[in-house]
């Protein structure tokens, strides 16, 4: 069993399945209503991937990063992660586009502990499946990347994007 990046963060017997970028791409590909939620820790490199992924899914960004996305050429929602996560646990919520709640959300770019807690909300109180594609293993997700070196992770994200976006 993968040890959570912060080793004490062991929630219980039910822990995330470790997925490779290609598995993640498959999971994402299968989902009908998917969304990506991005945190405050997004730098230029990752931002490029988000812009690409936005072709495949709705994107929510941390309001503090909204400025960096201006002119990125896609529609995005800026909302605090606590607020978005709260919406996701409401089955009757209509989604940001009015078409209903989502079946898969991917988290990226958060402080480790905050993401862990948000994934925990959805693990226990929502139907939506969760996928963590940050650098570190998040046991509270349904699916998570393993603990990765920076270069491994960057490569992983690139693979994910090309598999998913390039697939079509």
């Amino acid at each position: 069993m993968t040890i959570p990046w912060f080793s004490a963060n062991i929630p219980g017997p039910k822990q995330a399945k470790v997925v490779t970028p290609s598995m993640a791409a498959k999971i994402m590909g299968k989902a009908k209503r998917k969304m990506m939620i991005c945190g405050s820790k997004i730098d230029g490199k990752i931002q490029k991937h988000i812009v690409d992924l936005s072709k495949e899914m709705s994107v929510v960004v941390a309001p503090s990063t909204l400025k960096n996305f201006s002119g990125a050429g896609f529609e995005l929602v800026a909302k605090g992660v606590v607020e978005v996560t709260n919406l996701l646990r409401d089955e009757t919520w209509k989604g940001f586009d009015g078409k209903g709640n989502y079946d898969l959300v991917a988290y990226l770019g958060f402080p480790y502990y905050l993401e862990s807690q948000m994934l925990s909300v959805l693990k226990h109180f929502a139907k939506v499946k969760t996928l963590s594609i940050g650098r570190f293993y998040q046991p509270n997700a349904d699916y998570s990347f393993d603990n990765l070196r920076e270069d491994e992770w960057e490569k992983g994200l690139e693979d994910l994007v090309s598999l998913l976006v390039g697939r079509k």
């Binding site: 929630p11 219980g12 017997p13 039910k14 606590v82 996560t85 709260n86 646990r89 807690q117 948000m118 925990s120 909300v121 693990k123 226990h124 109180f125």
Partner: peptide
């Protein structure tokens, strides 16, 4: 809105109880 820190309860001798799922 609850974000459990731990999926278990370990407060009595019945436990630990897994409250997930």
């Amino acid at each position: 809105m609850y974000a459990p820190f731990c999926d278990l309860c370990c407060l009595c001798t019945y436990g630990k109880c897994d409250l997930s799922g």
